[in-house]
Design a protein around this nucleic acid. Structure first.
Lengths: 140, 140
DNA sequence: TACTTATTGAAATTGATTTTCAATAAAGAA
DNA sequence: TTCTTTATTGAAAATCAATTTCAATAAGTA
């Protein structure tokens, strides 16, 4: 459904809408866990056989540039992407199934201000990620 | 000074103390910013010319395993290491000079508990990193 | 000192990402 | 619709980082 919006975004920014991009967008937009370029490639090729890995890399690059996806950093690697939440959001990742949940973490203002005072830093940005087990995986 | 302690740690864990390891340890232990393997290689070779890049990779691997260094994740890349703080600490990075400051962030308990309740997750771990400008760089 | 074996650096290998390039197809104009 | 322009494509080649292999070396202990 929202895949169309992503393609519209691409179009508005002067990029053309192609079958290759359609396949990549469809996969990434609907995934609830972070995917590597090769994973996207494998999955999207089920929808569009002729797709090339190079195009996956190039499309992910553009989607990131438009803030439609974001990179996910994990202990095993940092080359994975997930649909970006709206506004300023943080990630909560399931260590078992990889599922990603978004949450807001604006409560950090108190902490950052105290750190700023202590260190003399001007704090511009923060990265916060939580790891654990999702409700479903807890049951096993 | 503490470079000796790191080497002692290596020794205690059954690893031998060599000139190559000495040079790598000396560089990494005294740096106040995260260094990539190649940066360590370039810097450590000034102290020990015969050093090979492979050995840098292998030594960093061991230091990480012993928790003497930790990996630093940044927008530009995630293959950089810095001397690890003691206990559970978070990083504050200067976006200009790369200097790294450690701080404790135990105030997160409230936040994580609230997120856990909201999402049904069992939260095991958290990553928090702040980015900004250090006191020195602010003046420019 | 002599011996055992971890460690070394060079070279080869692997794997991921990027670049090059000619063919193709999307989008707007006619 | 058809035509024209030009972004986009995938394959192959090139690059780059990281790992493995291996014979020579040197650390640590007896």
């Amino acid at each position: 459904m929202s895949a169309k919006l992503w393609l519209a975004q691409l179009h508005e920014n002067g990029y053309r809408i192609t079958k290759a991009r359609g396949a990549v967008v469809e996969i990434v937009e609907t995934s609830n866990r972070a995917l590597t370029p090769v994973e996207v490639y494998d999955m999207a090729r089920k929808k569009y056989r002729a797709l090339g890995l190079v195009t996956v890399y190039r499309t992910l690059e553009k989607l990131e540039e438009l803030h439609l996806i974001q990179r996910v950093h994990q202990p095993m690697g940092c080359q994975a992407f997930i649909s970006a939440g709206h506004g300023h959001q943080h990630l909560l990742l399931c260590q078992n199934c990889g599922q990603v949940e978004f949450f807001e973490g604006d409560d950090l203002d108190v902490l950052t201000k105290s750190i700023a005072k202590k260190t003399g830093y001007q704090i511009n940005e923060h990265w916060l990620q939580l790891f654990g087990l999702c409700a479903a995986c807890r049951k096993n």
